[in-house]
Write a protein that binds this DNA or RNA. Structure first.
Lengths: 345, 345
DNA sequence: GAAAGTAAGTAAACCGCTTTACTAAAGCGT
DNA sequence: ACGCTTTAGTAAAGCGGTTTACTTACTTTC
């Protein structure tokens, strides 16, 4: 436990009988030396157990070899999975990850974005979860080196990576249509979010393709939380169950709804069909196993990092790119034909 | 996007007509100045939007105001929740968090532990998941400033923070006993881990208190994974279901077991009772809702950080402390009296 | 055998902040 | 009017690397 100050470049240089420059340059590959000298230096490094001081290096080089990862809430399984994927990819590339949770507070988002300006981190994978009034976008455009993931920050001119929300909605719509549902409730997150918008459009399209205009879609908006799911389920019941199927726009919303529906004795899928979105929770063990649109969360996380590193931040053309990752439907057992004793509309 | 080099201390000093020392010392509170000078400096800081360069500061101060968090797998909801709690607490204290996933590879664990030696991080919250042959402990003792959480590293002489595993096992045992179970299968993680050991002892104690020696406990050991849960369930079936109740030592094990048991048409709790451990997954929505011992994961995470910061790392007395956090039982619906058509033993 | 290369390094400035040790000037007590 | 304190600062040496520009000795080449 005695803090014997760790060996520095100087010590290595002395031990090897060369200058610091030589060691440093050899280590950084900007100088190649005769085998003998090289050997001496390597021996010195090994015997002194030298490891470069990261702070000094960062100060000198002006970069940190660290990327920042900003997410609303790490405990949420969706973000947790994404964090894991980003960390994994970063690790593979020799980068460290600094983790920041915003808990959806704009103040924190702003603070974390500023990290880039002082080279605290070399770039940011940024996931937000709530509408932006333009401030965030402005800051992002000013700082650069940000990848916006999962949910849009509309005016930000940086690469963006989303799952194919429209396709997801479409798959859900088609699946419900296949079972004969024309009266569907869509429970989304905040209306301003593209995920909510696009999934809705996809859903509508999916139903229309089968039934044309003889469909009715109700739309509730809220947040991507369990609480909100509960509220929406109560509202749905209070309004007399005006649909034969529900498309819940996240695992959390679905979970909250199931809780309440179950309490009230509504059985799925006999009385009501339900389809979810995300599929990162163990939905297959639920009662009933929940059919859902699955987001390839890990792939998104890994891709986010590679986008961050591979983007040419000089060329503005390459910046305003929106990349969509396809989703799939995982059919389980929560969708059945519409119940007949269900009063519609 | 134009990288106009950010203002440094020097610029502030010039603008305020004082020396860098003065500004620095004022900022660090080691000098108090007459209101007028102070004002000038503050104005300069504001108008130049000065923010200290963290790398320079870290190099100079020899610390990083960053703590490292090492966990086996971030995507696992248990660790994800812990990560969230640690991050939150760290943020409250003005510290950054560097996140490292080991995926249970010792090499990585070692690499991350070394981060401390070079002040890369000021301390480490360390969660491992597999037995240690002594190497890890040695390294931990050498580097210091590590808090071992959730699972022990036996020879490490640092503060440790676990949930009260014995108590958890005991609660489970008593609960099963209350329903009349005397023949119980315990499915743990690796035998070498204290979690597995202590939970087993608690279970045994809980059953014994009720039934004395007329009990039989089978014990399977594996890993805390879904896959292992599946395997153990198959083994249990292959062996002819030699118990009326199962105590599964993690959410993952329980999930894996449920999957297989359900496939084979075993119904819980009619045919077989099941009780889990952790309770961070949405077990209440499972079929049936799963009774489980709940770990206060967030509390553990927060406490880990406060231990890290509050420990006096000089006094070796304060180091070898093991702190236990109480757990609770969450009774749902997966335990019932033993089925009669279940062949025991 | 002189000019031009090349191999094998090196000195010193710099990154931006912290901190120790020191000074100049003003106050103030007698 | 002199020494002593206090106030209000400052110069300069780090922290531990990176990097640019340069030197010195040894080969070639013609």
């Amino acid at each position: 436990m005695a803090q014997e100050r760790t060996a520095g470049l100087k010590d290595v240089a002395k031990a090897a009988g060369v200058s610091v420059t030589t060691v440093s340059r050899m280590l950084n590959g900007s100088l190649d030396l005769p085998a003998l000298t090289k050997q001496r230096i390597e021996n010195a490094i090994a015997s002194l157990k030298y490891q470069p001081n990261p702070h000094a290096r960062r100060l000198s080089r002006g970069r940190s070899d660290t990327i920042g990862l900003v997410v609303p809430d790490i405990a949420n399984p969706f973000f947790a999975t994404m964090v894991a994927a980003v960390e994994e990819e970063a690790n593979d590339r020799g980068l460290a990850v600094s983790l920041y949770a915003t808990l959806n507070r704009t103040g924190r988002e702003v603070a974390y974005l500023r990290l880039i300006e002082h080279n605290h981190v070399d770039g940011l994978v940024f996931v937000t979860n709530h509408p932006d009034n333009g401030d965030l976008a402005a800051l992002i455009n000013r700082t650069g080196k940000v990848i916006v993931v999962d949910e849009d920050v509309p005016l930000a001119a940086v690469p963006k990576l989303f799952c194919d929300n429209f396709q997801g909605g479409h798959l859900a719509g088609r699946h419900l249509a296949d079972f004969g549902h024309r009266h569907v409730l869509y429970v989304g997150g905040p209306d301003a979010m593209i995920s909510t918008q696009r999934r809705f459009k996809g859903l509508r399209e999916g139903l229309r393709e089968r039934f044309g205009d003889s469909i009715s879609i109700r739309r509730y908006s809220g947040e991507y939380t369990i609480d909100c799911g509960r509220d929406m389920a109560r509202r749905f019941l209070d309004e007399g169950m005006p649909a034969t199927a529900i498309f819940a726009s996240s695992d959390e919303i679905a979970i909250g709804m199931i809780e309440v529906l179950r309490e009230r004795g509504i059985s799925i899928p006999e009385d009501l069909s339900l389809i979810g979105f995300d599929d990162v929770s163990p939905l297959h063990l639920f009662a009933p196993p929940l059919t859902a649109i699955r987001q390839p969360v890990r792939a998104i996380g890994r891709r986010a990092l590679s986008l961050l590193l591979e983007t040419n931040w000089q060329e503005s053309k390459s910046l305003a790119i929106e990349e969509l990752v396809p989703v799939e439907i995982v059919v389980r057992n929560s969708v059945a034909p519409p119940s007949t004793h269900n009063k519609q509309r």
